[in-house]
């Protein structure tokens, strides 16, 4: 399991070079693509990710069955075995006779949704907190950073368990808990970057031109610190997906009628000793591949966006 308290320490420290206010996107994209193709790993990650996103969007339409349609007389059917009415369970059926393939396709949507939504929640809170903290400093900074200390000293898993036991498991609650669990990661990075950017010439210039504080924070500073945030977000999606699986294992995952890869994997554990491998292999592979893809892309983004590493190529 992986928990979002982890801060990839390899994330670029504040670059010494002064960033341009706006990169030229087209050139950047071309360069990115070239470097991605050059690194076969990154290309592989991208392909896996695109497939996963495709499945998340179109999977439910492709699924041969309702993922929650049970058929307890046709439970634990092996992959390729006969389903109801001449149909086939391509990836077998689970302990309630639900089609594993359909659940896997639907699960892609929920698992990725949990991953992205949690990052959106944590990222938004973290970015705002970090901007405030870094831009204003003083007591604002103190309060926010102390809150962060508290959060870090409180192992995320305990916080998650506590709130899920109390609030009850549910998709929204899980997203909130996983998201709130990592705001501090973003806040710290944004704060550090903001501190250094605050005194840069183009920020000074914006201030001199009478831009509002809000505009300076969100229009001038934020775009320039998106790079390290993207790197972290990529790693974090991976760890959120693993966390969701761990919470499912502890019985705090999504409700049983919501298929996620984590909950499918967790349900499979009672059947491993009795050789029902398909219950574990398919969701397990899906998790490993997607987590792998996010990690690879995170790596690549870091290498690609970190100017120091780039120089040494």
């Amino acid at each position: 399991m992986s928990l979002p308290t982890d801060t990839p320490a390899t994330v670029a420290p504040v670059p010494d070079t002064q960033l341009p206010p706006a990169p030229t996107w087209r050139r950047e994209l071309r360069r990115a693509w070239a470097s991605m193709v050059a690194s076969r790993w990154a290309l592989m990650g991208l392909i896996i990710l695109l497939i996963a996103i495709f499945v998340a969007i179109f999977g439910p339409a492709l699924a041969p069955f309702d993922p929650n349609r049970q058929n307890i007389l046709l439970r634990l059917v092996e992959p390729g075995g006969a389903g109801p009415g001449g149909s086939v369970y391509w990836m077998g059926s689970d302990a309630l006779g639900r089609d594993v393939f359909s659940r896997l396709l639907h699960g892609a949507r929920v698992s990725l949704l949990v991953g992205f939504a949690a990052i959106a929640v944590g990222g938004t809170i973290g970015i705002i907190a970090g901007l405030l903290s870094g831009y204003f400093g003083g007591w604002v900074d103190d309060i926010i950073m102390r809150l962060g200390d508290i959060q870090l000293a409180f192992p995320f898993i305990l916080l998650a368990i506590m709130f899920l036991v109390v609030l009850g498991p549910g998709l929204l609650n899980i997203i909130l808990v996983l998201g709130i669990g990592q705001w501090i990661t973003y806040a710290r990075i944004v704060r550090a970057e903001t501190l250094s950017l605050r005194e840069k010439e183009y920020v000074e210039a914006a201030r001199a031109m009478g831009d509002s504080t809000l505009s300076i924070m969100f229009r001038t500073i934020l775009p320039n610190i998106m790079a390290p945030l993207t790197v972290i977000a990529s790693f974090n999606v991976a760890s959120v997906i693993l966390s969701e699986a761990a919470l499912s294992f502890l019985g705090l995952g999504v409700p049983p009628n919501v298929p996620t890869w984590g909950s499918m994997l967790s349900e499979s554990r009672e059947h491993l000793l009795s050789n029902r491998w398909w219950l574990a292999i398919f969701p397990g592979m899906a998790i490993v591949l997607v987590v792998l893809a996010f990690n690879i892309i995170g790596d690549w983004l870091r290498d690609h966006l970190d100017p120091r590493l780039r120089e040494h190529g």
């Binding site: 929650n68 349609r69 049970q70 307890i72 309630l96 009850g168 498991p169 409700p255 049983p256 009628n257």
Partner: peptide, 20 residues
């Protein structure tokens, strides 16, 4: 979950809540 499905099959819309 199986009971929920069976009740749904006769037209009862069951909102199943599995709690700690």
């Amino acid at each position: 979950q199986a009971i929920t499905q069976m009740l749904q099959d006769v037209g009862v819309d069951v909102d199943l809540q599995i709690l700690d």
